[in-house]
Design a protein around this nucleic acid. Structure first.
Lengths: 225, 225
DNA sequence: AGGTTCAATATTGTATACAATCACTTTGGG
DNA sequence: CCCAAAGTGATTGTATACAATATTGAACCT
């Protein structure tokens, strides 16, 4: 991939995978687009091999559909899919938070606190880009389900967390939402630090319900225009 | 893959993926085993290309861990992982069942009924192999989360359903469990056919709790021997 | 004119060749 | 004798060549 100046983390395959995922999630490749290996290969400036491997992974994510001997077609997420995503997240992340409150190591607790502090800093500063908040939000949730001590939960929530990016971009760009996210995160953090499973569960439920409502409100407006 | 007489469904990649997944789930490749591409390539009699692609997918499933320029190492599932799996399934499949009760089309309802009928037939007949019941059980659950109308739920539960195979093999081999599974499935089926979301939710919760308890009891015995 | 067949072309599926990287051994110096 | 460093073998990462399959379009028949 022709990106001089950037350092390659991991293999080309990984990079292509992330690149394609981002392009689908951000709507660059829309639903129904057929991706021929050669075309993508030219677009990204690498050979077909890493492209194919990345597409295999996207297939498992459900972001593309592949049928043997045919080109892969982009699936993407509809607004309804995003809402379904919140429904699933509500059930899974509440579980993760409840477990994290009990299971997290001291180091993981410190990391979570640090992630929250960074969120506060970025939100206060005027040069806080949306993209930063997006990533910090993502990291906060990431730390929690990593701290749940459940490999299964981690495996399920990791991709879901990525998909949520699409919704975060919309959600966080509305005025006031980032402030609210911060408050909700604080309550979750407190509950986890206090090792209060039930409270962590409940605060996470509220947080995700709020996020879902926020997204729904915006997508309704967007659709009517 | 040198399997004369067998018809190839889909590509080599898919077949290798399924083969490797099965081998890991059935404990042929145990936790910590390093899989070099060349070795697997020789074992299955295909070139490295489809092997690599299959390994990419297994990585996303969390069944193997890959680090750049190093061999992939098998992760597999511990007993604790299996129990965590039931915890997740309980939350996700109850949701799927509740949604399916309302969302399923008439055709999907007929298919579910047919799947249940087949389970009854196989359970009654003496030549009912465990492997058949395993697959029928899997199919029953598959139909439900496909009928939930949520792409996200489907994407999450499909791999989980596969992983549950490992637990089903253990669980269904205990005397009486298959009869109980049948009864529980009947109650779920009824609730869905009656379009009773709450009942479907509750019956699914009970079903999975029973399965979890059954697995836990067995794994405890197995560990003590 | 419309449909069908067959050939040409494009695209995927697989194998292999080559480059980059890693792990291990062995050799040279202190 | 021990440690360091280069070299060697093994293994992954990438690219490309070839085979199998699908798609397209044009010519031919009805």
């Amino acid at each position: 991939m022709n990106m001089p100046g950037t350092v390659r983390h991991g293999s080309l395959r990984t990079e292509v995978y992330q690149q394609l995922r981002e392009r689908i999630l951000q709507g660059y490749y829309t639903h129904g687009t057929t991706l021929t290996e050669l075309r993508v290969s030219h677009e990204l400036g690498v050979s077909r091999t890493p492209i194919r491997e990345a597409l295999c992974q996207l297939e498992l994510d459900g972001l593309v559909m592949t049928t043997p001997n045919k080109s892969v077609v982009v699936q993407g997420f509809s607004d309804q899919d995003i809402l379904d995503l919140y429904e699933v997240r509500s059930r899974m992340e509440t579980l993760a938070a409840a477990r994290a409150a009990v299971q997290m190591t001291e180091e993981q607790r410190r990391d979570l606190q640090a992630a929250y502090d960074e969120e506060v800093r970025q939100t206060k500063s005027q040069d806080g880009e949306i993209i930063n908040l997006q990533n910090l939000d993502s990291t906060f949730h990431d730390l929690i389900f990593r701290g749940s001590g459940s490999k299964i939960l981690r495996n399920i929530l990791m991709p879901i967390n990525l998909y949520t990016q699409q919704a975060r971009l919309v959600s966080l760009s509305t005025s006031g939402r980032s402030q609210k996210v911060l408050q909700e995160h604080e309550l979750i953090l407190q509950a986890i630090l206090q090792r209060d499973s039930e409270k962590a569960h409940e605060q996470m439920r509220i947080h995700i319900a709020m996020a879902a409502a926020s997204y729904q409100a915006i997508s309704r407006i967007r659709r009517s225009t």
